[in-house]
Amino acid sequence: TYYTVKSGDTLNKIAAQYGVSVANLRSWNGISGDLIFVGQKLIVKKG
C-alpha cells in the first residue's frame, strides 16, 4: 500500500493510522529521521 503524505502528517500519525511502528515505516521507506514531505509517497505494509 502507498500513502501520500498530506500537510500536517507525521510519521507517528501515519504509523498509528495503519497500526504499524514508526521504525517499520522508516525501514520500508529508507528514512533515517522524522523528515517527510507533502506529496511524498510512503510504502505502508498493513500491521
Results as ranks from 00 to 15, higher is better:
32 S>D: 11
14 I>V: 08
38 V>A: 09
12 N>C: 06
40 Q>I: 05
18 Y>K: 05
4 T>V: 14
26 R>H: 05
5 V>A: 05
5 V>E: 00
3 Y>F: 04
20 V>P: 02
14 I>Y: 01
8 G>P: 03
14 I>S: 00
9 D>K: 01
12 N>V: 12
13 K>P: 02
6 K>L: 10
27 S>E: 14
3 Y>V: 07
7 S>L: 12
28 W>F: 05
5 V>R: 00
25 L>H: 00
42 L>D: 00
36 I>A: 04
39 G>F: 04
46 K>R: 13
45 K>T: 13
11 L>H: 01
42 L>F: 04
40 Q>V: 05
21 S>F: 05
17 Q>K: 11
14 I>H: 00
7 S>D: 15
47 G>F: 14
43 I>M: 14
1 T>I: 12
30 G>P: 05
36 I>F: 06
6 K>P: 01
15 A>P: 00
5 V>D: 00
13 K>C: 07
11 L>P: 03
36 I>P: 04
36 I>K: 02
46 K>Q: 15
37 F>H: 13
44 V>K: 02
41 K>I: 14
24 N>C: 07
24 N>Q: 15
38 V>E: 12
6 K>N: 09
37 F>E: 11
9 D>P: 00
20 V>F: 04
32 S>N: 14
40 Q>E: 08
3 Y>D: 02
46 K>E: 15
21 S>I: 05
34 D>M: 09
8 G>Q: 06
34 D>R: 06
33 G>L: 08
38 V>P: 13
2 Y>V: 09
28 W>Q: 04
23 A>L: 10
22 V>L: 10
33 G>W: 06
15 A>Q: 02
29 N>K: 00
23 A>K: 10
37 F>K: 08
13 K>M: 12
35 L>V: 13
18 Y>T: 08
6 K>F: 04
21 S>G: 06
9 D>R: 00
36 I>R: 02
18 Y>L: 11
10 T>H: 05
12 N>R: 12
24 N>S: 14
24 N>T: 13
32 S>T: 15
11 L>E: 01
44 V>P: 01
31 I>H: 03
25 L>K: 00
3 Y>S: 02
42 L>V: 07
20 V>N: 04
35 L>C: 10
15 A>C: 05
3 Y>N: 01
2 Y>K: 06
4 T>M: 08
25 L>V: 06
1 T>E: 13
38 V>L: 09
1 T>P: 08
4 T>K: 08
31 I>V: 09
1 T>Q: 12
22 V>E: 09
29 N>Y: 01
18 Y>I: 08
7 S>G: 10
4 T>N: 07
32 S>K: 11
29 N>I: 01
46 K>C: 10
19 G>Q: 13
16 A>S: 11
4 T>F: 09
45 K>P: 07
17 Q>D: 14
33 G>H: 09
44 V>Q: 01
12 N>Q: 14
38 V>F: 06
35 L>M: 14
26 R>K: 12
2 Y>N: 06
16 A>F: 13
22 V>P: 09
36 I>H: 02
37 F>W: 12
32 S>A: 15
18 Y>A: 07
20 V>Q: 08
16 A>P: 03
28 W>T: 03
47 G>D: 15
40 Q>S: 06
41 K>D: 08
27 S>I: 13
30 G>C: 07
2 Y>F: 11
44 V>E: 00
